[in-house]
Computed example of a mutant assay.
Amino acid sequence: MKYVRFSYHNTISYGILEENTIKVLEGSPFGEYTITETAIPREKVQLLTPCDFSKAVCIGLNYIDHALEFQLPIPTEPVVFIKPSTSALAHLGTVQYPKQCNRLDYEAELAIVIGKKAKDVEVADVGPYILGYTCANDITARDLQPKQGQWTVAKSFDTFCPFGPFISDEVDPSNLSIESRVNGKTLQKSNSSNLIFGVPFLVSYLSKIMTLLPGDIILTGTPGGISGMHHGDTVEIIIEGLGVLKNTIG
C-alpha cells in the first residue's frame, strides 16, 4: 500500500493512495485502521509529511562513491547523526536557506519508516518493524559542517528534512534506482544496491543503540554527486516506486 497523511477541510487524516485518489483511513497505519468508502481526489488535499517522527536517524558516507568524493575512508561501522523533528518538511514545501550558510546542498536518500516500537531487534527479525519506505532529502549547510567539526549543526536547521510524498510497502529496498534533479537536471544517479550498510542491518544496529518509535525514519545515506543549491531552485528526489519528492529553496 501507499500511505499518505493529508489535510482536507481542516482535518488531518491518513489515507491510501490509489493512482490519483486517496481512500481515507479510520485510524492510522501505525496502529489499527480500517479503509473507509470515502475517496478524495489527490489534487483536492494538501499532502503533509507522511508521518510525524520523534527523530530522523541519518547514516553518513553509506555509498562508496560519496565517501570517495570527500576523500574519506570507507566506514567499517555506520556513521550516525540525528535530525530533530523540527527539521521535517512536506512534499512541495519550501526549504529555508539559513542566513549563516553560504553553500546549501541536496542529498537524495532512501528513508526507512519504522512501523512499531523496535528495541534490540536482530537482523533476521527486522521485517515486521518496518512500515515502508519513502524519499528523503538530507539538506546540508555544507560550509558549516567542517567548521563545526561535527554534522548535526549543519544538518538540523528547520525544514532540512523534506520527506514524502508517501510511504510504500510495495518496494524492495535492496534494488531501487535513486536520483536527484535540480531545476530538471539530473545530478545524482545510483541504486540502493550500492549501499555499504543495508536496510536490515541498519534497523537492527540502531535498535540496539536507541529505541526506534513508530513514525521514526532512518535516512540511509546519499550517493556521490552532491553540489550546492541557490535561492529559487527546485530540487526533486526520485526513487523507483516511491514517486517524486519536490521542494523549492527559499
Rank of each mutant, 00 (worst) to 15 (best):
H230N: 14
T186V: 15
G115E: 08
K185V: 15
E19Y: 08
I64K: 15
G27S: 07
R5C: 01
C135K: 01
D138M: 10
S87K: 00
K55E: 14
E43L: 12
T140N: 07
W151Y: 12
V182D: 11
C161T: 14
V123A: 06
P75G: 10
P165Y: 11
H230F: 14
L206E: 11
H66R: 13
F160S: 08
E109V: 05
G60R: 01
S190V: 07
L68V: 11
T248N: 14
S13K: 14
A154H: 05
R103C: 12
L176A: 07
R5H: 09
Q46N: 10
G250C: 02
S204A: 13
G184N: 12
Q46M: 07
I35E: 01
Y133E: 06
L212N: 03
V126G: 04
F163T: 00
W151V: 13
N247Y: 07
T134G: 02
K83Q: 08
P146W: 02
A111R: 13
K83P: 06
K117D: 04
L195W: 09
E179H: 04
K55Y: 07
I12R: 04
S85K: 00
K55F: 06
L17W: 10
P146V: 06
G221D: 00
G60Y: 10
G241L: 05
Q150N: 11
Y14M: 06
A108T: 06
P73W: 13
K185M: 08
Q46L: 10
S190C: 10
S28L: 09
M229V: 07
N137V: 09
M1K: 11
D105Q: 08
S180I: 06
T140M: 05
V244A: 06
F163H: 12
K44V: 04
V4Q: 11
V235D: 03
D158A: 15
